[in-house]
Design a protein around this nucleic acid. Structure first.
Lengths: 244, 244
DNA sequence: CGGCTACTTGAATACTTTCAATCCGCGTGG
DNA sequence: CCACGCGGATTGAAAGTATTCAAGTAGCCG
């Protein structure tokens, strides 16, 4: 049956997601319009595309690449399972970002009227969405701080810390180790450095016993010191995230 | 009477704000808990303070300064009339940012339960809030792009363009001129450069006939070229903003 | 084994910051 | 009325940092 995907969703059972009441679950299930899988290094949506609904990443990594006319695509943000794609497009009609896959991904599609219906309805799902947006904004703010004032080590330290904590909340990483499928040039785009300098800085951090990134595996050797270096209190992903 | 402030609010009449139905207006008025004024260079809220409700800036300029332990406060974002303060704190219980005034300001206070009630209620106000949050996130993203990859001129060009357009939408600026009360060191903090380098870059932009910033007045001499330099399409503030 | 891609390293160049000195406008007090 | 002091802004020179270009290495797959 059509709706089973929502009720049996493995993501939804994770402890980092807020449990939905049965009414809410029915509502979300009713807006479910299918799911797709896509191989690594393809676009899920492209800047300029019309909105095709609200997507939720289920599996795999993706990245947001804002469209800067006349410039090659540059990724600025990592998307992990549970993250939404196309909320802005639902409101504006068309996508302002390209979203590319970094690994094989699977994502769900909700009706493009989902947001309208959700807000008409109101209730805790609506509050949860707002909470989640505020959280995202906060995350963006933190990265902006680091981009503005951090040295290369701080920028990378924050990226790794932030990402590993998000993964941990999803049960996709443990204390010291997590997958990290980004290439040096991707990392460079995100932290605003040249690829070469990222390489050098990673080498320095490895020598210093902070982290080790190789074979798409990130090992955080000294979590405490890494956190101290960023200067930002490690973000607490304590509250329950929303999942549609 | 208590509620008159909302109904006669001068901000609300501006064309950049979405008109509220009378029911919505009553709802907002009913949550209104007063307004305050504060001189320049004081804190509206401080990181760590408990939430005292949701504030809306009415007049004047302020800035968000994320709290980075062990570091001097650094402002990262400008707040203009219509912007909200303390949404995150309403959800998390306490403020994560300090907000300082850059000029004399006036702001309104809404009950700290406003957000809960609003989302229970649902409806177009709720959608408008989400729209507004998405918009803010998008603005943050743009600044992050510039911080990550822009040269000093691009960073400043974007800051000026962005700010002048926000002001224009508020009727507080015209095509070529707007108030700009930030000092060089404030600008430096926002764009992630040293004060000295901001100074040099501004001088270069002035010589180049792009802009002129002096006496707290920003003159945009060549709007088109400025927009071309940033690389980002000038953000369209065409949709109606929300105001509580 | 050759060719490909990702990554690393070195050296030269370009850019930013830092430090220090100076300038400018303005309000205050002699 | 003018000199002084102050904060903000500007400029120069030196030091520090990041980028670029180019060469070289490592691993992988055909």
């Amino acid at each position: 049956m059509l709706n089973s995907a929502c009720e049996t969703c493995s993501l939804r059972r994770k402890e980092s997601f807020q449990p939905l009441g049965s009414e809410d679950l029915d509502f979300v299930s009713g807006m479910w319009r299918g799911e797709k899988t896509l191989a690594a290094f393809h676009s899920i949506v492209r800047a300029g595309d019309p909105s095709e609904g609200l997507f939720t990443l289920r599996e795999g990594w993706a990245a947001i690449c804002p469209d800067v006319p006349g410039q090659p695509l540059r990724m600025t943000e990592i998307l992990l399972p549970g993250d939404r794609i196309g909320l802005g497009a639902c409101l504006a009609g068309k996508h302002r970002y390209t979203v590319v896959t970094l690994t094989r991904v699977r994502y769900c599609i909700l009706d493009h009227l989902f947001l309208q219906k959700l807000t008409q309805r109101g209730g805790s799902l609506c509050l949860a969405l707002i909470r989640s947006l505020v959280e995202e904004r906060s995350r963006r703010e933190r990265m902006a701080i680091l981009l503005g004032m951090g040295n290369p080590i701080q920028r990378l330290a924050y990226l790794f810390l932030e990402t590993s904590m998000r993964l941990k909340a999803l049960g996709l990483a443990d204390e010291t180790m997590c997958p990290f499928p980004l290439r040096r040039n991707h990392i460079a785009e995100i932290v605003g450095l040249s690829e070469v300098h990222v390489s050098r800085t990673l080498a320095a951090m490895r020598r210093d016993g902070l982290i080790d990134l190789s074979n798409n595996i990130l090992i955080i050797s000294d979590h405490k010191r890494l956190a101290a270096i960023t200067g930002l209190n490690p973000m607490t992903y304590s509250h329950k995230q929303l999942i549609f």
